Simulated assay, not measured.
Amino acid sequence: MATGRRNNKSLQVSVRLPLEDLELIEKVKESDESIAGFLIAAAKTEIKRRQRKSARDETKS
């Protein structure tokens, strides 16, 4: 059983979003998708994008 904000697989974090951004997320997320699920998917996509960018920048050097 998880105790506190951390368990074997995850860490619970709290973030504040501007209401305008939250409204936009509500408009574009899938109907059966949670906001947390949307944010996790968006974060994973952004991580991959930045990793590819970093790898490209390293090959240019």
Rank of each mutant, 00 (worst) to 15 (best):
M1D: 09
M1W: 05
A2M: 10
A2W: 03
A2I: 00
T3G: 03
T3K: 08
R5H: 11
R5N: 13
R6S: 06
N7V: 02
N7T: 07
N8Q: 14
K9Y: 05
K9A: 01
S10M: 09
L11K: 15
L11W: 10
L11Y: 12
L11G: 04
Q12K: 15
Q12T: 11
V13H: 00
V13L: 11
S14V: 02
V15F: 07
V15I: 15
V15E: 06
R16M: 10
L17E: 02
P18A: 05
P18H: 05
P18N: 08
L19K: 09
L19C: 11
E20V: 15
E20F: 15
E20C: 14
D21Y: 11
D21V: 08
D21C: 08
D21N: 11
D21R: 09
E23R: 15
E23M: 11
E23G: 13
L24T: 10
L24F: 13
L24H: 13
L24S: 14
L24R: 14
L24E: 13
I25P: 08
I25L: 14
I25S: 09
E26I: 10
E26R: 13
E26W: 03
E26M: 10
K27D: 15
K27M: 14
V28E: 06
V28K: 14
V28P: 05
V28L: 10
K29P: 07
E30A: 15
S31A: 12
S31L: 01
S31H: 09
S31P: 01
S31Y: 00
D32A: 13
D32M: 07
E33Y: 01
E33F: 02
S34G: 10
I35E: 01
I35N: 02
A36K: 05
A36W: 00
A36L: 00
G37N: 01
G37K: 01
G37F: 00
F38Y: 06
F38W: 02
F38G: 00
L39S: 01
I40L: 15
I40D: 05
I40K: 13
I40H: 06
I40Q: 12
A41G: 10
A41S: 12
A41K: 12
A41Y: 03
A42H: 04
A42S: 12
A42E: 04
A43W: 06
T45E: 11
T45P: 00
T45G: 14
E46V: 01
E46C: 09
E46A: 12
E46P: 00
I47T: 03
I47S: 07
I47G: 04
I47C: 08
K48T: 08
K48F: 07
K48Q: 07
K48D: 07
K48M: 08
K48H: 07
R49P: 06
R49F: 07
R49G: 03
R49E: 01
R49L: 13
R49C: 07
R49Q: 06
R50Y: 04
Q51H: 04
Q51D: 05
Q51F: 05
Q51K: 11
R52K: 14
K53I: 02
K53F: 05
S54T: 06
S54H: 10
S54W: 07
S54C: 09
S54G: 11
S54M: 12
A55Q: 08
A55V: 07
R56H: 09
D57T: 11
D57H: 11
D57E: 14
D57Q: 14
D57W: 11
D57M: 15
E58L: 09
E58R: 02
E58I: 00
K60I: 14
S61N: 07
S61D: 02
S61F: 09
